[in-house]
Simulated scan of single mutants.
Amino acid sequence: MDNPDLFDRTARRLRRNRAAPDYAAHDFVRATMLDGIAERLDAVTREFTDILDLGCFDGAFTVPGSRIARCDAGFAFAKGAGGVQADEDRLPFADASFDCVVCAGVLDQVNDLPGALTLIRRVLRPDGLFLGAFVGAGSLSALRTALRLAEQDRPVARLHPQIEVRSAGDLLMRAGFALPVADVETLNVGYRDVGRLLGDLRGMAATNILVDRHPLGKAALTGLAESFAAAADDQGRTREKFEIVFLTGWSPDPSQPKPARRGSGTASLTAALTPKP
C-alpha cells in the first residue's frame, strides 16, 4: 500500500504558478543556495556537458558551455524556463541521461524524498555529480515561536516538517550515492513585521502545502503579528533564519576511491596515542 501524501501536489503546483510572475523579488534564499552550489561546482576539476536543473524556478542557474535541461513541478516555471513539468519523485527522464543534477530549493516539499533521491541517482551517468540544497531543520524559528504563542489553545501544524543535516546525509547513502556529504549554512534576515515574512514565503512558493491544513483565523493572525513584533531587536527588526542544507553525492563508478578495508591499517592506534618520551 502506498503511503499517503504529506504534501498536496495540486496546491504545490498552484502556489508555484502564483509565485512565478514576481519570483525575482523574493528569490534571495534560492540565490544563496545557487551561490553555494556554484562554489561546490567550481571545486570539481572536470566539465559537465549535460545538466538537469531540477526544480528550476525561473531558470537562473547557468553553467557556460553546458546543455541544461529544466524541470519544475509548476507549469508556469517550467514553461518560462523552457523545461518540462514534473514532480521530483516522478521524473520523466531516462536512466543515465545527465552527468550532473542540480536541485535547489524544492526537496523539502517532496512527498517521497528517498524515492526522489533514488531517481536522481538513476538519471545520472556513472561518476555523475548531484548537488542539492534545501531549507532544513531550525529554519523559520521566529515564525514557529510566534505561531505557537498565537495559537496556544488550539495549535495547528502550519510549517512543514524539516530535515536535519545528519538525516539528509543518511538519505543520500540510502539512495545509493557514493562519497555523500551534507553540510549546513545559515542565512539570517531581519523583518519589520510578519507580513513581510509571509509575503516573501508566498513569493518564493514556500507557504503551507500540507494536505491537512487549516486557515489562520483573524484573532490568531493578530496574535501572530503581535508575538512576532515582540521579538524585535533594538532596530525594530525580528531576526528570522533559514538553515540551508547542502547535499553532494556521486553516482557510483569503479574509478572512485574506496574506503580502506577494515584492519588494513599499518599504524597502531595504541602507539599513536602513547606519549613520546
Rank of each mutant, 00 (worst) to 15 (best):
F93N: 06
C103P: 08
F98V: 07
S141C: 03
R148L: 09
A175S: 03
L179M: 15
L129N: 11
T118C: 12
M173G: 15
F93D: 06
G132L: 14
R122T: 11
C100P: 01
V156L: 09
E164N: 15
L147F: 13
A150T: 00
G199L: 03
L198P: 02
I209L: 00
V194Q: 04
E164D: 14
T186Q: 12
L147S: 08
A116M: 03
F177K: 13
G132V: 12
D183K: 05
L210I: 01
S97W: 01
V184R: 13
L198N: 13
A94Q: 08
R196S: 15
L210A: 04
D200Q: 09
S167I: 11
R174K: 15
T186G: 02
L210C: 00
D108G: 14
G203R: 11
S141H: 13
P155E: 00
L201G: 10
P180K: 15
V123C: 06
A142P: 08
I120P: 01
V123Y: 11
D95R: 11
A178Q: 00
N208I: 03
L171I: 15
L117F: 02
L143P: 15
A150D: 05
R125L: 07
S139E: 10
C100R: 08
V194S: 04
P155V: 04
V110T: 04
M173H: 09
A168I: 05
L198K: 15
A150E: 01
V135H: 09
V110F: 04
V135K: 01
Q162V: 08
L201F: 09
L197E: 00
H160K: 13
L124F: 13
R158E: 03
T145W: 04
E185W: 00
D170G: 14
L179G: 01
G136H: 04
A104G: 04
V181M: 12
A206I: 04
I120C: 07
A205M: 00
A175G: 07
V184M: 07
D112V: 03
V184H: 02
I209Q: 05
A205H: 05
L113K: 10
A178P: 03
M204S: 12
F130H: 01
L143G: 04
A150W: 07
S141L: 10
T118G: 06
I209R: 00
A178K: 02
G115M: 04
V101D: 11
A168V: 14
D183C: 10
G128D: 04
Q162M: 13
G128Q: 15
A205V: 03
D95M: 09
A178N: 04
R166N: 11
G128T: 06
A206N: 02
L179I: 10
V194H: 10
L187R: 05
S167W: 13
L187E: 04
V106I: 05
M173I: 15
L143N: 11
G199I: 09
T145F: 14
F134E: 04
V184P: 01
G203N: 11
E185I: 07
V135S: 13
A168Y: 03
L187I: 07
H160Y: 03
V135D: 08
A133Y: 01
L187F: 13
G169L: 12
S139Y: 08
R144N: 13
T207P: 02
